[in-house]
């Protein structure tokens, strides 16, 4: 029999036809298995607050984590124009920093994986500072970005914990930088509490970001601080080789040859971890907001 190839081609054509006829999924390019498809008119969809590790006392939590707050379901309500809304519903996920220069906030979705292969992370996002001034404020948001927190399975040889990070450095100290950066170093692990079971490291510390070669990109930043436009982002990563495969933001695809992830020895309790984080960081004493209209996480299995 030699029918497997035509059958596969037909199955793939049928899959794509079904995807493209579905108004909710047609804007994405998911791999064959959709792990999650989040539209925030359906709720928070598991995007929760990244809480830091602690033991005995919350005071042991590292300051980077202590500043985090919960995600919100937002209609992007603005004082001058009312609710902006999302692409397919009134709601988007909102990640808001505190109003202090350098403040960050992180949303996390925690899964595990069942197959070490290609995964794809797609989101439609936008960002703005709090509209507390009648100014364009285009350099008030320092960065928005995402990271994965991954670890090999318990029977995998040489398993590591791997954390690919990418951020869009919008501005730094008032300069409108607009480029993608990655990170291969984290801060030292610190024991927290009185026992030896709990460690913590703040991998989103300001140090250690490196420019993605060719990663300069000017995104759409509309003309007052209450107008937003949704931006498409896609990141492909191979859980087998633990390497980035592809990265696209709107019409640009970036060469990921030089991209590296944070790599640390496997931890004793995080096997098959598949976590996704989204974060925002402010460059002024003003809140920065990351909004996500929708997200689709898929895998090739």
């Amino acid at each position: 029999m030699t029918t497997s190839q035509p059958t596969n081609e037909m199955a793939e054509a049928l899959r794509l036809a079904l995807l493209r006829a579905d108004p909710k999924l047609s804007r994405f390019d998911p791999l064959p298995r959709i792990i999650s498809h989040d539209e925030f008119s359906n709720g928070h969809c598991g995007w929760s607050q990244l809480v830091g590790n602690y033991e005995d006392d919350l005071d042991t939590m590292l300051p980077g984590y202590a500043q985090h707050t919960g995600t919100m379901l937002s209609t992007l309500s603005h004082w001058d124009s009312g609710s902006h809304g999302g692409m397919g519903s009134s709601y988007a996920l909102k990640v808001a920093t505190r109003p202090r220069k350098g403040a960050q906030n992180v949303a996390i979705k925690r899964h595990t994986f069942r197959h070490r292969g290609r995964i794809r992370f797609e989101v439609y996002f936008t960002f703005k500072p709090e509209a507390s001034e009648l100014k364009l404020s285009e350099t008030d948001v320092r960065s928005v970005g995402f990271l994965f927190d991954l670890q090999a399975g318990d029977h995998d040889k040489g398993g590591e914990r791997v954390m690919p990070h990418l951020r869009f450095l919008n501005a730094l100290d008032g300069e409108h930088v607009q480029k993608w950066q990655f990170k291969r170093q984290t801060t030292a692990f610190k024991p927290v509490g009185s026992g030896d079971k709990t460690l913590s490291h703040y991998h989103l510390a300001p140090e250690g970001w490196e420019d993605l070669p060719g990663g300069e990109q000017r995104l759409c930043y509309n003309e007052i601080s209450t107008k937003v436009n949704w931006t498409y982002l896609r990141f492909d990563f191979d859980l087998e080789t633990m390497k980035a495969l592809d990265f696209q933001c709107n019409d640009r695809r970036f060469d990921m040859t030089a991209f590296e992830s944070i790599r640390i020895p496997a931890m004793k309790n995080l096997w098959c971890m598949l976590n996704f984080c989204l974060f925002a960081e402010t460059d002024t004493d003003k809140r920065a907001f990351l909004y996500v209209d929708s997200a689709c996480i898929s895998g090739d299995f």
Partner: peptide
């Protein structure tokens, strides 16, 4: 129906004019 518990202030020392961070919950 959606039903969420959100921690809006955790281990924060409140002094003077204190407030939790703004929270959107129009839904």
């Amino acid at each position: 129906p959606e039903n969420i518990t959100s921690v809006v202030s955790r281990n924060e020392i409140w002094t003077g004019k204190a407030a939790s961070e703004p929270h959107e919950a129009g839904w």
